[in-house]
Design a protein around this nucleic acid. Sequence first.
DNA 1: CCTTGTGCACCGTCCGGACGGTCGACTACT
DNA 2: AGTAGTCGACCGTCCGGACGGTGCACAAGG
Lengths: 171, 171
Amino acid sequence: MAPTRDRILDALQDVLLEDGPGGATLDAVAERAGVSKGGLLYHFRSKDDLFEGLLDRLDAGGAAADAQCPPDPDGAARWFLDGSQTADGPEERTLLAALRLLGTYPPASDRMARYLDDWAAGLRRAIGDPVTARLVQLVGDGLFLHALLGSGDTPLDARVKDAVRTLLDQA
Amino acid sequence: MAPTRDRILDALQDVLLEDGPGGATLDAVAERAGVSKGGLLYHFRSKDDLFEGLLDRLDAGGAAADAQCPPDPDGAARWFLDGSQTADGPEERTLLAALRLLGTYPPASDRMARYLDDWAAGLRRAIGDPVTARLVQLVGDGLFLHALLGSGDTPLDARVKDAVRTLLDQA
DNA sequence: CCTTGTGCACCGTCCGGACGGTCGACTACT
DNA sequence: AGTAGTCGACCGTCCGGACGGTGCACAAGG
């Protein structure tokens, strides 16, 4: 079995994704993690401390993502654009959960902004022109926003991604 | 004095923006609006009903925004891209407040997605090629996401906007 | 002209329940 | 024996919502 601390963070993510920040009570998280409330509060001294733990996990994911970015422009763009929409895998799950903290836990905004910037670091490295790199990032972030609101991948978006990548050849 | 119902919705926005969804209690909203809790519940039968009222106000703003979109491609793009970042004015205030409902009040996701789509309707009308129109929309939504997280307008983003608009001439 | 009635807008209090957090006791490993 | 980890009962607080009541506007009837 995974360490208790990780199980609690997993449980927090689950609850955040299913019930939103309102449902993320200490009781709910503890029950989900198979731990009593006292046990939870042993690992995280307060609710804010628990949120901080989730944001720390996010930072780790951002750094790991950056390391995976292909070094060539086209590969980097493809990697970034596709990654902006997927909601599968443990890291994306952490991200989506952290998003739910935005209005609730004030420090979340800054941490999220830094996370988006970490993701785009590889893009800036692979693409010479900073304006083009930023454009690719913004398109990706736009896709991400739509994915956030629940709209899945559309055929039109696939064509947009192709269009963006042909743009890279001209730059 | 503005109608009580509107004053209550204004108060809800204020509280949502200042304290997040957690602070948006019936008591807090009522006090802010200069109304007793009973008075508030006379106009909105439940907390969910109150949230619904805010989302309705958002829809009205979306329809109004669409009507203001210039008919020519360059004007439309400029209008959309600049509008994605501003956080001033009563309509943007409503939008930012509604965003705070995302994880808290489940129906908010769908309503927000529809709102984004309403905004882009004018873009699709003004720009012939649907792929290009969608690209402009995604860049705008990306800018919007960053504005949401608190990062202001950067010089780099201004150059990206110029680049997007020169793209329109080629299409 | 006045009074009786009707309904809308609003008020203030109360209550059941849930929430965050504390505490002392228990267990298992070292 | 000591310590890290876990438990579950408990406390004070706050929230959403229900409820009974108040006052005003306005219209009908005498």
